[in-house]
Write a protein that binds this DNA or RNA. Structure first.
Lengths: 356, 356
DNA sequence: AAAACTGGGGAAATCGGTTTCCTGCACGGC
DNA sequence: GCCGTGCAGGAAACCGATTTCCCCAGTTTT
């Protein structure tokens, strides 16, 4: 007795052979009917498809992959645990790949080289069609050691090998956007508070901030960038330093949203009104920080999901025989909220009991 | 010419047949040698293994899965996008599964029923051995509609079907831990500020908070739970309400870390010193909130990674023929930081410039 | 010395599809 | 009426492993 659509727990899964029997044709013909290959009478094709439908036939992807040589799977390797930055990239990639009927193997190496190597072997054993590697932020990483050549795309953290293709955020553009916005809203004494100088993200943003200001004929408030760490405590401290260095400072551009939030607290405690007396800008558009900040925070969104999507598309191109190389940037965008409101404007949406 | 370990880009992958040829045996014998099955002379086995090593042979997992009927893969479906809570669960599960030589397909349904159904079909087509489903928080969800029976474990958000097995956090224990800690450190007028009443997490924690207090012969400060939303703005507002309702309140137990953080800000602005005059407790142990809070926040850690690991182990048991059923809780733990320091103690670690 | 074991390893079926090659049939042209 | 043509679909090889079955040689048993 051949399985039926309603066999449920009872029988084994429906195979192409069952469909062939029901339709009164050979398995090969079923394959052709389903995949639209070969020459078949429309009537036959319809009969086969109907049989497949009646049995609830779903082709075994492992068997299919075995003969076709393509598994329609890719590996998603996050070298440095999945975090706040890699997660959106991951999801963006998974989204785009899913649309391309490709399934995703998730591998979290927790920053362990041994584990990374192990995962790569495992993925190759499963005959993945390609690999996406996300690293930490923008700092480059050595390329994956691959026993066999496989299409790879690096996302977020680029490969040090220029022959590889990498997708990164455009921190230079982000800094320029912020500076342009601050200048356009009338700020002239702009300070920059950011993370550790040895982080590429911090140094690149700082460099382009200074450059953009200089091109506009403006000098950095306080004369130097305040490098520190990425947390709120540093934001509070750095804001106080900036006020001390230049009491007339009228804007703080922070290297991330946490620093900005710390700065917001320090400014409030120092009695400086944001945005009336001083504007505040963050980076990352991390909703819980940007929305909880008082006032809500103007910040740069790096479009990480878009970066992930682009990485997936780039990978699919490479799998289809159109490889790419080099480092490519994904545009970011400025998200304007209350912390850079036009200075003369009154604070908007002052919620009951939400005293600044 | 058979492929060698160093064939790299040139040739096709090394197959069991290549190994057989090099070792001078049949493919079947190679399989036995590698998997430790059948009867082989030690000398033959060694010769085969050596040949495999020399060629860098790695068995094709798709072929292996086809004959064995097991794919050694599982699907990880997050019904409601991957977020702050589901991510640690995911990673914990992936960790445990990886240790069991099982690879993980990641599927993010973004809360879309259609997409969920699509993913389930796709995963079944790939002949996954089992499924883990993570939902949003503790609120139950209808079970997955499965065309074929497959082992499933629900994590974080339980299934409404008691025949399924679900793993959830132990919110009752969390509330009891907090109350016990507050009472033990001498607090007696304890208020509870939390999220929307219709969220199970909020109502369960509230219920057990009240119950634990009552069992200790203490009434809730203000006489009622302050339900609201999960954000900082509500935390600020609710804290002010709690102070108004009971000016002598000496502890605020908050339903999550964001509410607690908002409360911390409101308390500071109201001139109440934490923890000297009033203790503050959060829930979730979300590091960026708990560590950035002034003072650092005592909170409940739900052990979400552990929950994910347990879900994976439960699933592997089910796959091996030992199914489970019912809702199981994973113990949580209290993380004590400065916000509940013994009232008489001086604030510790007063960092330079970090005025409270 | 014949019969019965036993250990070692090969041949071939199998998993579930895909794809190539080939055949049978109907049709058209001469 | 015969031959070439083309269409529809079948047979079988193949993808890369696993596993059963079987055979052969050497050893033990009677």
């Amino acid at each position: 007795m051949p399985p039926t659509a309603a066999d449920g727990a009872a029988g084994r899964a429906v195979t192409i052979h069952d469909v062939a029997t029901l339709a009164g044709v050979s398995p090969g013909t079923v394959s052709k009917a389903i995949n639209g290959r070969g020459k078949l009478r429309p009537e036959t094709r319809e009969r086969v498809l109907d049989a497949a439908r009646r049995l609830g036939f779903r082709p075994n992807e492992m068997a299919r992959g075995l003969s076709s040589g393509r598994s329609f799977t890719v590996g998603l390797v996050t070298t440095d645990s999945v975090g706040r930055f890699s997660l959106p990239v991951l999801l963006g990639a998974e989204d785009a790949l899913g649309a391309g009927r490709i399934s995703v193997f998730l591998c979290d190496t927790r920053g362990d080289q041994i584990r990374e190597q192990h995962y790569v072997r495992t993925l190759l054993d499963r005959r993945i069609d390609g690999l996406i590697v996300t690293g930490r932020r923008t700092d480059p990483r050595p390329p994956l050691r691959l026993p066999q050549p496989v299409p790879v795309v690096y996302a977020l953290g680029p490969s040090t090998d220029p022959a590889d293709v990498s997708l990164v955020t455009d921190d230079a553009e982000g800094a320029r956007l912020v500076v342009a916005h601050l200048l356009a809203t009338g700020r002239r004494r702009i300070a920059h508070l950011t993370g550790p100088e040895h982080h590429l993200a911090a140094s690149v943003r700082a460099e382009h901030t200074v450059r953009a200001l200089r091109e506009a004929g403006v000098e950095l408030s306080g004369g130097r960038v305040h490098f520190g760490s990425w947390d709120e405590a540093w934001g509070r401290q750095a804001a106080r330093m900036a006020l001390l260095a230049d009491p007339a400072v009228d804007a703080l551009f922070c290297g991330n949203d946490q620093i900005a939030r710390g700065a917001a607290d320090a400014l409030r405690e120092a009695g400086r009104r944001v945005p009336d007396e001083i504007a505040l800008v963050g980076y990352d558009n991390w909703d819980v920080m940007a929305e909880a900040c008082r006032p809500t925070l103007t910040t740069v969104d790096m479009n990480l999901a878009e970066l992930g999507r682009t990485a997936a598309l780039t990978l699919m191109d490479a799998i289809d025989g159109r490889p790419a190389r080099g480092v490519r940037t994904v545009p970011c965008r400025l998200v304007v909220r209350d912390s850079t409101g036009v200075p003369t404007a009154q604070p908007r949406q002052r919620r009951a009991g939400d005293g600044g």
